[in-house]
Design a binder for these strands. Structure first.
Lengths: 235, 235
DNA sequence: GTCTATAATTAGATAGAC
DNA sequence: GTCTATCTAATTATAGAC
């Protein structure tokens, strides 16, 4: 039908369909839904159909935009680490001028707040980290190793100032990760056990303060720590 | 074929096939394989075929013994918590006579060593804890809540002696869990990042010592802590 | 109790219209 | 770019022989 093709060609010049914009919007909505799903249920537990439903599109669109479920997973991880890296970049200039121990405390707090805002990151990571495989190797080499090395440097500097005595830096990294993320990673379990929401502003602040107190006790007094409410519950 | 049936009946009386024993053995082998698989890949990622292969039996036997994949998961969790509870029972008499802070330190060390021996427990738990669902509710109410309450009691007692100041007990529980288990949970990632094995005897001991130092710094000097090797690596 | 064979279901991916 | 319809492959579960 040449006439129809012609009509289409004409219309396509008159009406700017901004295909890139719509595409980018759709991609983003899919990615947000995917992060939620992968974080909740892991790669195998997450269903592309469910992700599509949550994003308000049809399932084959995922393959159109990302090629495969694995491609979607990578794009989602990429997106989230991009946000984390942006947060760090933003804080970086401030950190340079600080005492290394204060810098470490700042990084800990930043990390706590990022995890409260985006619990998917640690959920997703930990689900891949329990067994070797292509996804783990990809995420480690592409995203984790740089921040790992940076934290090691910070820890070594803090240790030269007498903090974190006798803890191997790589162990300190794992301790940080575990202690900082666990409440948010297992928030549904925390909710079932205590009836409380770990994402509330007070609880985030208390959590960050507790972490700094644990890892850098000598820093606590010098910083304006958020009030810690020790709560009384019937049990 | 009546003659064959008769022969079978006769033979079955002469040769004691000890069916229960074989059954119990098989069940155990399936459960061990299942724990590994569920811990590595989560409920959805674990395949009953693979579990059967690892256990050296055929896949339908799983349904014969456990009814369903979900039944197998429950039996495996039950088995593992049984072991944990046995460890705790064993240590309990010793703990009663201790200062609550020392008792807490002992519990931390016991928990570290159990997790080093059975990383599946925390792997499995954390994979269910990220989203509400029937498996999470079952495991929380049946297995986690009792130990949660016990730890809260210990923390409150330790706080009355001045330890863990200003940390809400439920938060302390999460911090313990995260800090104690993370190296073992994400052992494959740790291995990729550092080239080291977190399960070695020295590393377990160092990890336990670091944890006690973090949470109960005043206890450290009084206890025979394992030597902590601060290791030097090229990077 | 354990096996072989297979049914039933459902996942991710593709084809093709619009 | 997005949709509908469908394919292919792989999973858990069942039937039935031994």
């Amino acid at each position: 039908m040449p006439s129809r093709r012609l009509a289409h060609r004409v219309r396509s010049r008159l009406i700017p369909r901004r295909p890139r914009l719509r595409s980018a919007e759709t991609r983003l909505r899919i990615i947000e839904a995917a992060l939620q799903a992968f974080g909740d249920a892991g790669f195998d537990g997450a269903l592309t159909r469910e992700i599509a439903r949550a994003a308000g599109i049809q399932q084959p669109l995922i393959n159109y935009h990302f090629g495969s479920k694995h491609g979607l997973w990578q794009a989602a991880v990429e997106h989230l680490f991009g946000r984390l890296e942006a947060s760090v970049e933003e804080a970086l200039p401030r950190l340079g001028s600080l005492d290394p121990r204060d810098a470490l405390a700042e990084v800990l707090e930043l990390f706590v707040h990022f995890n409260a805002e985006h619990p998917e990151l640690a959920r997703l990571m930990i689900k891949e980290a329990t067994a070797r495989g292509p996804r783990l190797e990809w995420i480690i080499e592409r995203h984790v190793r740089p921040s790992f090395e940076a934290v090691l440097q910070l820890v070594r500097q803090a240790q030269r100032h007498g903090s974190l005595y006798g803890i191997e830096p790589a162990s300190a990294y794992c301790l940080f990760m575990g202690a900082a993320t666990s409440v948010f990673v297992m928030a549904p379990a925390f909710q079932l056990l205590t009836g409380n929401d770990p994402f509330s502003a007070e609880r985030r602040a208390a959590h960050a303060a507790a972490l700094v107190r644990l890892f850098l006790p000598e820093r606590t007094a010098r910083r304006d720590t958020a009030a810690v409410r020790v709560e009384r519950r019937p049990n």
